[in-house]
Structure formats: C-alpha cells, structure tokens
C-alpha cells in the first residue's frame, strides 16, 4: 500500500509537470509531424517501399515511417526526462526523491514508468493528428501497440536513466543527444527498411540490425498490424533489463557515482 501510494505520487507529479509544460508537449508533437508532413511527402516519390512483413500491400512512405516516428517521440521523451533528471539533480529535487525511505530501485522504476506514461500520451496525440492528416492505420492497431509502447518507453527511459547517472552537467548532455539520439534514430529501420539500407551500405545495415531501437520500431510496426514480433520484443525486453539494472547500479549509494558528482561541487 505504501509502495502504491508512493508510486502514484511519482506518476501524478510527472503528469502534472507534463500538463504544466505545454511547450514541451507542443515540441514533442511538432517534431514527428514535421518529419511526417514535410520529409515523408518529399520522399514519397523517391522511395518505393516493396511489400515486406507486416505489410500485405504496397504502402505509402508516410505509412512506413509512422512506427519510426512513434519511436522518435518516445526516444526524445526518454532522453528529455533524463535530461530533466540531470537538471533535477542540479536543482536538488532528485535528492528529494532519493531521501524517500522506500528502496532506491523502486523509486527509480516509479520515475521510469511515470516518464513512459507521459510518452504514451504523446504518442496517441501524435497518432490522432496523423489520422486527421489522412494517414490510414488499422483501427485495432491503436490498442495493439499499447504494450509495445510501454516496453519501448521503458527501454529508452532506462537508457536515459543510465546516462543521467553518470553525466555530471547539463552541458555534457547536449553531446549525448548528438551521440545517442541521432545515431539511434538514423541508424535504425525508422526511416528506411533494413533491406534498403543494405543496398546502400551493408555496414550501415549491420549496425541498424544491432541497434536495439530498430527492434523497438519493428515491435511497434508489427503490433500496429496486430502481429507479434517475438525476436524484436525479446531483444527490447532484454535490452531494457540490462539498461535498467545498470542504471540502478549507477544510482546505488555504495557505488559512489553520486559522490563523484557531488563532492566536486563543493
């Protein structure tokens, strides 16, 4: 019961903050919509997408990149909430969370789930606008992607949490955005199918196959068509577990990562 109250408190705060920060919400929506409306429209002619699972007919490029853009929304949200964690720690409110008497791993997971729920709200808002714009997606898919969204949110959130545990200052974070977000997004199947990448460069295709974000995108892509991709889901779950374990280790008081950061501030 105590755990549930605490958990709900953390989630509720994250949702309140999300509602208050309208700018962040708008930015989270504009980013994928710009890709969808401007980028995809330009590429529609240049790039034919052959039939490949889970698609059963020829599809427009706009339809192809929807799962990738969903992943993008969640990737940015995951990184942003860890950015806010770096910021929170500088401002001290991460300390407020960590002096709670409940186990630290539990607190971090609560924070992670809260961030994931926020990202899911963003994804559905994005899908709504995309539908209004005229993108046709299977109706069942809206519900079927929910578990996939949850897993993806946990994976990118754990990555953000891990990064936040050893990034000392906000300035360093901008670098991580460049070295984490962009490579993860571009070197994946979000924008082009792997077979298409392979035509261009077998090396890039290989990297994309190893990129866990590719598997998150594929998991969402299959779920959108009410199909379950075992391989992709397994890889996402395993990656999340490893990243989360490392993040909890990073915030473990005995490991002293926090000490390294705070002792130098004095």
């Amino acid at each position: 019961m105590i755990y549930l109250r605490c958990f709900w408190g953390v989630v509720w705060r994250e949702l309140l903050r999300f509602v208050q920060q309208r700018g962040r919400f708008v930015a989270a929506l504009v980013r994928p919509l710009v890709w969808l409306i401007v980028f995809a429209a330009g590429f529609r002619m240049a790039l034919g997408v052959a039939i490949s699972p889970p698609y059963q007919t020829y599809i427009l490029y706009e339809v192809y990149i929807i799962p990738g853009l969903i992943g993008m929304v969640q990737l940015f949200n995951g990184m942003q909430s860890s950015l806010s964690m770096v910021y929170d720690r500088e401002m001290g409110s991460m300390r407020v969370l960590l002096v709670s008497p409940l186990p630290r791993g539990f607190l971090l997971v609560a924070k992670l789930v809260a961030g994931t729920l926020v990202s899911i709200v963003q994804v559905y808002a994005f899908l709504l606008i995309a539908s209004l714009y005229g993108i046709r997606l299977p109706t069942n898919g809206f519900l079927m992607i929910l578990p996939a969204l949850f897993l993806t949110g946990l994976m990118v959130g754990s990555l953000g949490l891990l990064l936040s545990s050893f990034i000392k200052q906000l300035e360093n974070f901008a670098g991580v955005m460049n070295f984490v977000i962009f490579p993860m997004f571009f070197l994946s199947s979000a924008l082009y199918p792997i077979w298409r990448l392979r035509e261009a460069s077998p090396l890039i295709a290989r990297v994309a196959e190893l990129n866990p974000f590719t598997h998150a995108v594929e998991m969402i892509r299959f779920a959108l068509y009410s199909q379950f991709n075992w391989e992709a889901t397994g890889i996402v779950v395993a990656t999340s577990a490893v990243l989360l374990a490392l993040a909890i280790l990073g915030y473990n008081p005995a490991r002293g990562m926090m000490a390294r950061k705070t002792a130098t501030q004095e």
Partner: peptide, 16 residues
C-alpha cells in the same frame, strides 16, 4: 509550476 499543496502532497506520497 506546481502549487504549494501539490508539492507537499508529492512529498507525502514519497513517504507513503
């Protein structure tokens, strides 16, 4: 951006 009450309720929740 949160109210005084919301801030305090968050803390109370952290203590279960």
């Amino acid at each position: 951006d949160l109210t005084v009450g919301q801030n305090l309720a968050y803390h109370a929740a952290l203590h279960g």
